[in-house]
Design a binder for these strands. Structure first.
Length: 424
RNA sequence: GCGGCCGUGGCGAAGCUGGUUAACGCACCGGAUUGUGGCUCCGGCACGCAUGGGUUCGAAUCCCAUCGGUCGCCCCA
């Protein structure tokens, strides 16, 4: 084989593309009910947007971006996530001036990260994301979380676990960071190499290290929640109160950290209980990003959103054996016998299709037996048979593929009958 | 960037302590059955075992390299 698909990408073939449509339609429908409007931003942006927005020190920016130079010498990057683009668009299109606030947007589209692929992690993957911008009402936090939970629940997923935390404002975060360093530094040599690294880069990450989970310093480590300002603390309490009022169960985990620089205040994740699938348990991540729009040159704007991967969703559905209602099978397969009938086929097919009937015929010069097999394989509800006799009479043999009953009737009658049966 | 496992027909999969013709199953095509499928029977379907070197009288089977897949680490959706 000369050409191969690029690493970390996939062809979504007809066997699975219907699942994607179902899931995407669910997202569209849910957003309609929650009154979020679709936004479509470019799949690439100025590299600087992500460096600024996502954060220079993040793994995404440091080693995962698909960056290239265009013919004009501009540095562009395939988007690794959606929030930076939406924030850019918010500022650029002066959405702060729109009559209806907050501006509630959603998107579905491919994202790109240069990583070693593994189960649930691709170089091109599809995210469904939601952003609510312009409001710092804790009720909108709860709404965004509720939307995500409903999305999974309405698709039938079980064992969902919502985890929330508050990262506080910048001051709270810095104070907490110092406290963590002070806590671990004296005995950091007792920790794994990764953790020793984390002490420098992101001390918060030490808290969810799998290797050092049982170290005694873990239990006594300072919690971000103890460093929240009164305001941040009250805000977080309100988010929780709203979740409770909607009967959405959650767990507060002070170790929940989000990886991107723009997050602050409310942070949340939806995970799969137990082992999940492969090494992946996180289905969705999100949080508040007050200040992002401002960082990108717009007005001071609070914002909150989430992003989830449709690949991971489909994997989760599959591991739980959840079957989505895929419509399959065509309405009619036209079997022809002899040259005259074959020549008449296109015209009859044309008429069937114009009448709203999903119809197919043979283009491989198959014998009758082969045509019937094809009709079975394609799950045709009806088989139409025409030969010299039928052509002469302007009739067609209409056969119900399942029951095997058949009758010789005029073409128009057959079309009517199929329409009636199939609701076309 | 690092590590484990793997790479044989459209798919699944034997063969892998080296030795004429590369099992078998599924799918597909044809015939038995020249106007009717799903069952049965018969037949067909890999100038070739990821690619390139090497060892050998001889390699799908051993060695090396490269590429690819997969799973995991890091991190994340």
């Amino acid at each position: 084989m000369k050409y191969k698909i690029p690493r970390g990408t996939q062809d979504i073939l007809p066997a699975t593309s219907p699942l994607w449509r179902i899931v995407e339609e669910k997202a569209h429908d849910l957003c309609r009910r929650y009154n979020y409007k679709e936004i479509r931003t470019p799949m690439f942006e100025q590299t600087e947007l992500f460096a600024r927005g996502v954060g220079d020190t993040t793994d995404i920016v440091q080693k995962e971006m698909y960056t290239f130079e265009d013919r004009g010498g501009r540095s562009l990057t395939l988007r690794p996530e959606g929030t930076a683009s939406v924030a850019r668009s918010y500022a650029e299109n002066k959405m702060h001036g729109w009559a209806d606030q907050p501006v509630k947007l959603y998107y579905i589209g491919p994202m790109f990260r240069y990583e070693r692929p593994q189960s649930g992690r691709m170089r091109q993957f599809v995210q469904f994301g939601v952003e609510a911008m312009g409001s710092d009402d804790p009720a909108i936090d709860a709404e965004v979380i509720a939307l995500a939970m409903n999305f999974y629940q309405e698709l039938g997923l079980k064992g969902l676990k919502l985890v929330i935390n508050s990262l506080g404002d910048k001051e709270s975060r810095n104070a907490h960071r110092s406290a963590l360093v002070n806590h671990f530094e004296p005995r950091i040599s007792e920790f794994c190499g990764d953790c020793q690294q984390r002490l420098e880069t992101n001390p918060l990450r030490i808290l969810d290290c799998k290797k050092d989970r049982d170290h005694e310093l873990m239990a006594t480590a300072p919690s971000i929640l103890d460093y929240l300002s009164d305001e941040s603390s009250a805000y977080f309490k309100n988010v929780q109160r709203y979740l409770e009022s909607m009967n959405i169960p959650y767990t507060v985990d002070s170790g929940l950290v989000r990886g991107l620089d723009y997050y602050n205040s409310t942070a949340f994740e939806i995970m799969l209980e137990g082992d999940g699938f492969g090494a992946i348990t996180t289905l969705m991540g999100g949080g508040r990003y007050n200040g992002l729009v401002e960082d990108l040159g717009g007005p001071e704007t609070p914002g909150i959103g989430f992003a989830l991967s449709l690949e991971r969703l489909l994997m989760a559905l599959e591991t739980q054996g959840i079957e989505l209602p895929v419509e399959e099978g065509i309405d009619a397969y036209l079997v022809t016998m002899g040259d005259n009938a074959k020549q008449h086929a296109p015209a009859l097919l044309h008429r069937l299709r114009a009448a709203g009937i999903a119809a197919e015929a043979d283009y491989m010069n198959k014998k009758m037996k082969g045509q019937f097999k094809a009709a079975d394989r394609q799950k045709a509800a009806f088989t139409l048979v025409i030969g010299d006799d039928e052509l002469e009479n302007g009739t067609v043999v209409l056969k119900n593929t399942e029951t095997g009953e058949q009758e010789n009737i005029p073409e128009e009658k057959a079309i009517e009958k199929i329409k009636e049966e199939r609701g076309a």
